[in-house]
Design a protein around this nucleic acid. Structure first.
Lengths: 135, 135
DNA sequence: TCTTGACTTCGAGTTACTCGAGGCTGTTAT
DNA sequence: ATAACAGCCTCGAGTAACTCGAAGTCAAGA
């Protein structure tokens, strides 16, 4: 059961350009048909699932590549621990990111309210960006 | 009261390279001393406060540049509304980002627990990244 | 036969830095 | 007076992770 570029791209909500990039850097495995076109099978699908998941969690392609490399190696305690370390480091990163994003969202809410008050004529416009909190 | 490159960079926890970049693209205003070195005053500080705040909220330099341009123009209803639109769009973006980051953080928590169970020998190692949820 | 559509490679452009080389300036130590 | 040093300057190249477009290939359908 082989999929074409287009089907595969649609399946993962990404572009053909991106998929070409991933296969070119050796991140995503694929076969070629007799016309040299990339074709994707269930294995490609499984790898792409892992890749896009780690991506959504904010991992760099380099880290994902390393993680995938480890997955392809023989199982061992060392290997397992190496993968665990990557996952742990990634969790830290995504936690920091989430905290920052939440703070930023809260701040923007305030900013929007501020602007709505100005627009309603309740307070004067203070164009100066220096009046912003949290410099 | 002028500040040197170094002082200014320390004040905003950034690098001199980045500040040079910001001044070069016309985002951050600065003066030059008689030796052609950049010097920063209170006005630079105020602008930089606005810039780093918008940055933390995930705005692109392009958007920040446009926002700052509007701030420098004469006040008007139109201008005010244009700035409001930028702020609104940015809030939407940062909200989406926060939601994504929170979901990713929760997922990574699960992933870490999963790994810890494998490490404790409670369940076998399933190296296959396709076993990951949320393909 | 011609067109269409889906692919191919390759090379350039993007954002927001990041780094380093090589050079200038201004102060301090010898 | 000279040397060393810190701190700045410009300029050009490199980075990640795409993104885009040009020019070419290949098979199927009208």
């Amino acid at each position: 059961m082989y999929m074409t570029m287009k089907q595969f791209a649609e399946m993962f909500h990404t572009t053909e350009h991106t998929l070409r990039y991933y296969t070119d850097i050796g991140l995503l495995p694929c076969q070629r048909d007799d016309g040299n076109r990339r074709v994707f099978d269930e294995e490609s699908v499984r790898w792409m699932q892992g890749i896009s998941c780690l991506k959504r969690c904010g991992a760099s392609l380099k880290d994902i590549q390393e993680y995938c490399r480890l997955c392809r190696l023989e199982e061992s305690r060392e290997n397992l621990e190496a993968r665990y370390r990557i996952i742990l480091a990634n969790r830290e990163q995504v936690r920091r990111k989430a905290a920052e994003a939440n703070a930023a969202a809260a701040y923007m809410d305030e900013k929007v309210r501020h602007y709505e008050e100005i627009l309603a004529g309740l307070i004067p416009d203070d164009t100066n960006p220096g009046s912003w909190a949290g410099g």
